[in-house]
């Protein structure tokens, strides 16, 4: 090799060393790929994609179909975990349901002006159409007695039929033997007094629903001059609430809504009621041990007596 060719070769070598240094400096200053970089990437990308596809396909085949040494043990372990977690989930769901029911009972207890006793539902015989016929609660004859009302946060459930040992049977409001004195209220004006129509709620005892009817539902409302006076014609959707008469259920508990009007002879109306309480979902109830005390007629008018000898609290 001649000296001239050697010089050209080493000059070219020096240039090829210097070139990437300059390119690196420029790319660091610029920060974005040049058009040449993008063009090369566009050309080489399909090749790299193809290589990746082949390699990952082979690797995937290996890991999915050949290298399955620990898969059986891992599968068994995961199945066991799954079963355990399902059981835990079921237990937690049940507990959450119980907690929600107890929270409801606490609310009921707070707003009910009567002595109450919480009880857990431990049994519910079903009809052939899977409707609850009556409830069994975990309170016995030492705690509850026959005819005590049973309620939830949603409304009345029924009354204690009989108590024995540590249990008591609750007859539902949908049972033909159940009778509750009720009045009708317009749901669009829940704070207004009822229209005066009164009646007796009686269970229909159907095997496929919890429907009730109201017997002797008055057609005439309150007398002229009284609040809510006038016609007491009811309509579908009107709320049925307890009247508080009969010294059993406190007044104002929503029993259900009128679902069907069967007749109106001008004196009495025949209607069907759909109860608000879904008995099949009730897990805890509240038993009213004693009727609420009668309201004090002087509650807002009576003044506190003056303290003796002029002493006052600091």
């Amino acid at each position: 090799m001649t000296l001239r060719r050697r010089l050209v070769d080493w000059s070219l070598t020096g240039f090829l060393i210097l070139l990437p240094a300059l390119v690196l400096r420029a790319s660091l200053a610029r920060g974005t790929p040049t058009a040449l970089d993008q063009a090369v990437l566009r050309i080489t990308a399909p090749l790299e994609t193809a290589v990746s596809w082949v390699v990952e396909g082979i690797g995937g085949t290996w890991s999915r179909y050949v290298a399955l040494v620990d898969v059986e043990a891992e599968n068994r372990e995961l199945r066991d975990d799954n079963e355990r977690l399902r059981k835990e989930l079921a237990a937690m769901t049940r507990r959450a349901y119980d907690v929600a029911a107890l929270e409801d009972l606490a609310v009921v207890k707070k707003r009910t002006p009567a002595d109450t006793l919480g009880a857990r539902v431990i049994g519910a015989p079903l009809s052939p159409q899977f409707r609850v016929l009556r409830l069994k609660i975990d309170r016995g004859d030492r705690e509850v007695a026959a005819d005590m009302p049973v309620i939830t946060s949603e409304g009345p459930v029924g009354r204690v039929d009989r108590a024995y040992g540590n249990y008591a049977d609750v007859v539902l409001i949908s049972d033909p033997s159940s009778r509750i004195d009720v009045v009708i209220r317009d749901p669009s004006q829940p704070t207004a007094p009822s229209n005066g129509a009164r009646g007796v709620l009686v269970g229909l005892g159907r095997a496929d629903s919890y429907a009730c009817k109201i017997e002797w539902l008055e057609r005439q409302g309150r007398p002229a001059g009284a609040p809510g006076a006038g016609d007491a014609k009811v309509k579908v959707g009107d709320e049925v609430v307890t009247s508080g008469l009969g010294a059993s259920f406190p007044a104002g508990l929503v029993v259900g809504k009128i679902s069907k009007i069967n007749g109106d002879d001008g004196m009495f109306q025949a209607v069907e009621v759909r109860p608000t309480v879904d008995v099949s979902r009730v897990r805890a109830v509240m038993v009213l041990l004693a009727p609420p005390p009668p309201p004090d007629p002087d509650a807002k008018t009576r003044r506190r007596s003056e303290p003796a000898f002029g002493t006052r609290p600091l």
Partner: peptide
């Protein structure tokens, strides 16, 4: 230069 583009390094680093 090709390795620079594959690896995401600044062009010129692996070339140099």
């Amino acid at each position: 230069y090709l390795i620079d583009l594959i690896s995401g390094a600044p062009p010129g680093l692996f070339s140099l």
